[in-house]
Each structure stands twice: as C-alpha cells, then as structure tokens.
Write a protein that binds this DNA or RNA. Structure first.
Lengths: 187, 187, 187, 187
DNA sequence: ATATAACCGAGACGGTACGTCACGTCTTGCA
DNA sequence: TGCAAGACGTGACGTACCGTCTCGGTTATAT
C-alpha cells in the first residue's frame, strides 16, 4: 500500500486536490510563474490556504504534479519510417512542447526555478521527462546503442538551448539539426 | 555625443552605480537570486532605494549589467593546437562558467527569469554571450564555415542542457561531446 | 445580535486591538501627532502593519477610538452649589482638557485633521464630546432651557477659540467668561 | 531700508516669489493642506526646490504669507446703523471667511497645523487676524470698551467652534448669537 | 451510537518586500 | 549669488503575499 492511511479522521478530498491542480494550470497561463502565488492558487481553487500547504510545500511542487504527466504524453511521438523523419518529428514535438504547451511552460518555469532553488533542482531530478522521451526515440532507432554517450543530450541540447535563449522557434531548422545529429558520433 | 545630458541637474553618481553593481555581485553569491531583493541591494550598497529604481527596473537588469562583462571574459579560451583540444577546452570553460562562476550564476538566473518575463527575454537577447563565445572558437577553427547551420547551438546545447537539468557537471564527458561535435555535420 | 460575524475565519484579536490603542496613546505624548505614523504605531504595538490597516484607515481613526472615552470622562464635572461656580469649574475642566490631557491632545489633533479631511470630519461629527459635556452642565442648571439657542456653543466657544489660537491658557479668565455667559441671553 | 542687501550677487527674484505664493493658493484649493507639498509647490510654480527652501522653511510659512493679507481684507465689514446689525454682519463675514474663502481655508489649515506644531503656533501668534477684525468692529460700537474682557473671544468663539466642529454653517443662527452677545457682559 | 481525529473553508495574525512619494540636501551649468 | 534642474540618502506610505494560527464544521473510522 502506497497510501499510508492514518488511524482515523476525514480522508483527503480528491476534489480539493484536483481543484488546486487545475487552478495552477490556469494561473500559470494567465499570470505567469512569477506572479503565481500560494494565496492566489488557493483562492482560485476555492480551497483553504492551509489545505494547499498541507499537501504541497511550494508552488513548484504543485506545478510539478500538475504538469509532468501531460509533459510525458506530449513528448511521445509516433514511429516514422526513417530515422531522419523520426528524429525530425521528435525535435518538432520538443519545440512545440517547450514553446506552445501549457505543460511545457510549467516545465520551463520549474527548470528556471531550479537554477536558484536546490529543492526544485532535486524535485525535477526525480523525473527526467525530456531525457526519457529522447531515449525512447533513440532506443527505437538503435536498440543496441551504447549508454552514457550523451546521445540524448546531443539530440535535445541544441533545440533546448535555442528555445531557452529566447530566440524565435520558427527560425530553428529542426531538419538540419536532425541531419547533423545522425551524422555525428559515427566513425 | 552619446551622452544626451539634460540641461541642468546633478549628474548621476558613478560611485552609487558601482556600489550597486558590487552589492548585487556579492549578494548573489551570499543569498542567491531568489533572496536577492531591491531593498537588500540598496541597503548593502549604502544607497537610497529610489536611486536603484531610478536606473534599473528589476534585479535582473542590475545583474545583467553586473555580470555580462565578466561572462564574456570567462568564456574566451586560448587557442589550442588541434580542433579537438580547442573544442574540448571551450566546453570545459563553458561548464566552469555555468557551474562555478559568479557571472555564470548571474547568467543562469537571468535565463531563468527570461522564461516568464518578456522584458528579461528581450534584455538577454540583446547580447548573446554564449553564442558569441562559441562562434569565436568555431571561426578560429574554420574561418569559412557557413552561417546559420546551428553549429554554435550544437556545440553549446548538450552541455547547456546537462547543466540546466541540474545534473552533476563532473559526470559530463566534454571530450566525448567534442568528438561527436567534430564528427557531425560533415556530409 | 449586534456582532454580525462572518461564517468562518480566525476571530479578531482583542489583544492586538488593545496594543494598538495603547501604542497610539503613548506615541502621541512621546512624539506628537505629526510624527505619529502607522508604521510606528504597528511597531510599538508589536503588531503587523496590515493588522492596523485592517481595522483602521488612518491614525485619526485610531486616535478617535483611543481618546474619546477618556475625553468624555475628563469633561464631566461634579455639581457645584451655584451656577457661576458650576460654569467656572466646567470651563476650567475644558481648558485643562484641551491643554493638558492626552485625550485632549488627541481631540485637538482630530479637529485639526478634520479641517482638511472630510472623513475625519464625519468621524468626529458622530460624537460631539465637547457639546455633550457642556449640555450636561447646562441641563443641570436649567432643566427647562430651550434647545437650539447655541448655549453650548456660547459656553465653549470663547475658551475654545482662545486655546486653539495658541494663546497662553493661564491668561484666560474663566471666571469672567462664566459671568458673561450667565449675563447673556436673558432679557 | 528694511531690505538688507547682500554684498553682491543676483538679487532675489520677485517673480519666483509671486509664483510660489500663487501656486500655494491654487494647490490648497485643488488638493487640500495635507496633500500640499514643498515639491508640489515648487513644480507648480516652475521654480527650483532649493529656491523655495531658501526663503521659506515650511509650507505653513508660505501659506501664511499667501493668505493673511487676503484674510484681513475679507474680515473687514462696512459700518451698519445699529450695533445688532453690525455684529450680525460681522458674524456673517466671519462664517463666510471660514467656510467659503480660500484665505479662510488657509487660516483653518494653519490653525490645524498649529495644534501639533509649535513653530506654526508661534507663526500665527504673530498676527491675530480674527481677533483684530473683531476688535475693530467692537471699537467702532463702543470706543471706550475695556480691554481684556474677552469680548472679541466671546464674539468670535461660538461661531468659530461651530465651524471648526464641522457642523453645517447654514444651521448657525448668527442673529441669535449677535443678540446674545449684546445682552451679555452688561452689569 | 458515539467518540476521536484528520480533514475542510475562511480569515486574522506577525512579518517583510514591494514600488512610490516627499523629505531636505547636494551638485551641476547658466544668468 | 540666485536660479532651474535633478540626483542623492532617508524613511513612511499602503498593498501583497508569506507561512502560521485559530475558528466552526464535516466526514470518516474505531470503539
């Protein structure tokens, strides 16, 4: 049993939990991460402030719980006929996730917070959604690929850097990046 | 004349400006970006709060002015005998900058803030210190290299992603990354 | 029920309320009305600033709540054997109140603030402590006295004007004022 | 010569002085005494801040210089045929001054400030405009009236108290006050 | 059935940073 | 020397949110 139940008492309200997660999703889009406050979340969710603090310590934790499932789903791409097509389509999904998706906004906000908050750093380290999604694609292309060759980092990194630097996603040539990626590390 | 001075009035105090920049540098190391406050900066600098707000809108702007010159300097690497050595040494400098340098901490903080603050986004877009440092190295290796092939992004990206994800810099194999980088994009 | 309490929430702290009122009383004597600040009151009371603002809008309101009970008490004079003695003793109490009493200092400060603040004007209009105290004395002397003959104003006014003009209270001849008052408006 | 001229240098600008006085008059009506600031006065007058401070210490001083001449003029009433008419007409002028006139607003503001500022108290003590105006009327009615009988205070006081208490001037019966005044202090 | 206990909402509590305003002083260049 | 301009250090303003703490009430299980 994961749920270590207390001896008695009222059980946690699933309704309150959902309301908080939805509220965080909405507010992130409406006001941005910086203006996201525990107070605002509680009020938007129609929930007591203490109830929020009882189950989450920081807004980062709530955002993590609210976004990561969506993130995983959005980064899963359908198989393609060629490696080039597959890599390209993955990079497109990655860019779309980072720049258009609410879950991507949550991810970027968390990554940002992690740069100056060790607690958030540990939190996101528990679940490497980007790396896992890239590895899934790479494993499909080459099931015998070596571990620890930074392949996932080389696949994700260039696009990731482009986006995080704040440059226009439309000017990013994912096809070129895919070609370069496949042409590297060979002989 | 660049300095379009008003007709009258007391001139800006260079001493106050320096004091603020030093205060930001110090405080960033001592308390971190999240705990960096305009109030704290002013007090540490021995400067009025209004004086800080008069010249900078946000702590990000101050940090930008305080860090970017140092950043540029720290990312300039000495020429090496072989391309591989040069690339590797650049990547080492990059990792050192992002993980150990005060200026690098400032850079990461700014990049983080840019993820949810369009003003900061524009600010850092005005001066692409990472991209410029990579381009300098790449130009030295191949003066005739094509523009817009994302070479700088492919060079920086993997290490950048590794660091930003919060993973251990010691476990990053810059030599391997350098080899992969040089083996890609050929034809 | 007079106390229309909200449905939930922590109840107002009577301790905090008292601490604020005492702090205002103390500070008025120590630093004067002009140097009385909401910040100072909160700090002296050991209370959050928001807590002060939650229950009072201005320092005048706090002062009103803190002083008016005392004022009423200090302006009540014991009956005397003759009208002249009674009126004289009332005028002495009035002068003492306006010039020596902490509550009187509060009253003068409020009256002053009312001259350029309609809100304070309305506030003090809700409780005419001076007029009520004078009426009490006048009613005792002549229970059948007509209303609206400005008797209370004629009794209070001269001494009030003298004090408010900043002239030396010791040079005010209350006995003469009492005699004149009793000699007027008769036949 | 009253004006002790300095050894050399630019003479005081009469234009600047007038501009400041007009600015104070205007601003008092527009924003009220509390919101009247040295900064605001200087800006409205189109004058340097230092220039204001050079010639006046406080806003009260400026207001005093700007209002008291007007006050004296407005409180001078034309002779009437009977004492009752004269007294009544004086009281009407007094009420009008205190409640309608810009100079009266200035006077009330100064009197208010004097309640908690000894410097202002001394300032207004140098020129008793109300008392002087009342004495002028009383002297005309009875040139041989005794000094120090508080007659001026008894004349002014009731109306003054009524107005300062913030009660409706329209409900003040000046005729009744005049009758009472003339019926008092006889034998 | 009835305690007991943990949950729920609401909202006041002492703090602290926010960004603005005015204070009174100072430092310019010009008249 | 006076003057307009305007930056300086100081400190109060009123607001927002922090995380904690009562409140009255609500649901569950454990007697």
């Amino acid at each position: 049993m994961i749920e270590a139940k207390g001896r008695g008492g009222r059980p946690r309200s699933e309704q309150a939990r959902q309301a908080v997660l939805y509220a965080v999703d909405d507010l992130l889009l409406e006001v941005g991460y910086a203006a996201l406050t525990m107070k605002g979340i509680a009020e938007r969710a129609g929930v007591g402030r203490q109830t929020v603090y009882r189950w989450w310590s920081t807004k980062a934790e709530i955002l993590f719980e609210a976004s990561m499932d969506d993130a995983e789903e959005e980064l899963a791409v359908a198989p393609s006929r060629t490696p080039l097509a597959e890599i390209t389509s993955y990079l497109d999904a990655l860019v779309r996730f980072l720049t258009r998706s609410p879950a991507g906004a949550g991810y970027r906000a968390l990554l940002a917070a992690a740069q100056h908050d060790p607690a958030v750093r540990e939190l996101i380290a528990t679940r490497d959604v980007l790396g896992a999604s890239a590895s899934a694609v790479l494993d499909r292309i080459d099931p015998d690929r070596p571990a620890d060759d930074h392949a996932a980092d080389r696949l994700i990194g260039p696009a990731f850097f482009w986006i995080m630097s704040g440059r226009d996603p439309a000017r990013l040539d994912t096809h070129e990046l895919a070609r370069s990626f496949l042409g590297s590390g060979k002989s």
